[in-house]
Write a protein that binds this DNA or RNA. Structure first.
Lengths: 124, 124
DNA sequence: ATTACTAATGCGATTTATTTGCAATAATTT
DNA sequence: AAATTATTGCAAATAAATCGCATTAGTAAT
């Protein structure tokens, strides 16, 4: 299944890149220049995740936020960094901090979802 | 608003205590002996959270899981431990590991939600 | 250029998790 | 036993995310 280059994909990626933060579908729809259907935005986002372009963060508000994968992120060490969700401006940003943990034997960790919630630098 | 002791509260707390894990509303409804309405379960759970009896974990599947607060947990240092969600048995458990992080100046952290997803000891 | 192939899109409907309004019920205090 | 009001059940409402399906439009081959 070869991927195609479409205006929707370009627009979504452009918005997220410009924001420099993790964004939810509705935030993207608000910011985006062209008119794209909600379902399409979700499909574009999920495809980008599959392709390792974006990563998904589940915040405490139960919403998915999507952020650019840094180039140094490998498939193996997947995005084990903290995220910060601001309750004031409602944005999610990737923090430089890596998540360190050691789990008991027998556990197999497939993904890490760490979100700190509070008030960000800009809003405090 | 003084709290009252009701069969619903007792039943919900009993199920969670017996499980020794974090549980979602539907898992609780499945396990519970008496017949309690879905909305009631949610209200009971949220009240317990308000009262510091339970804490809420948002998993990657977008569902809320509720777990007992250990007695040594204080309001201040709120539940900064890791959680593990198993994709096989679909349960969430509290890990003993504390979450350590240092955030840049200007950020105010109000809550921490860290969930590792994978396969647990029992299922692997 | 034109055609063929099929990924991507739009739309509407659906699913799933959680909450809410409101009237009825029941725990607790007097 | 009566009064007060927290709690519950039920149905409906929200809200996020997904899905089926017919249509559109990239892409590669001719």
């Amino acid at each position: 299944m070869k991927r195609r280059n479409t205006p929707s994909k370009q627009a979504v990626l452009s918005v997220i890149t410009k924001a420099g933060k993790a964004m939810s579908q509705d935030a993207i729809e608000e910011e985006i220049a062209i008119d794209i259907n909600r379902a399409t935005i979700y499909r574009v986002l999920n495809r980008f995740c599959d392709d390792g372009v974006l990563h998904k963060v589940m915040a405490e508000d139960g919403k998915q936020y999507f952020a650019l994968c840094e180039t140094y992120d490998t498939k193996a060490a997947t995005h084990q960094h903290f995220h910060f969700k601001c309750t004031k401006c409602d944005t999610v940003e990737c923090l430089p901090n890596q998540v360190n943990f050691s789990i008991p034997d027998g556990y197999l960790v497939e993904s890490v979802n760490c979100v700190l919630t509070g008030v960000c630098k800009n809003c405090s």
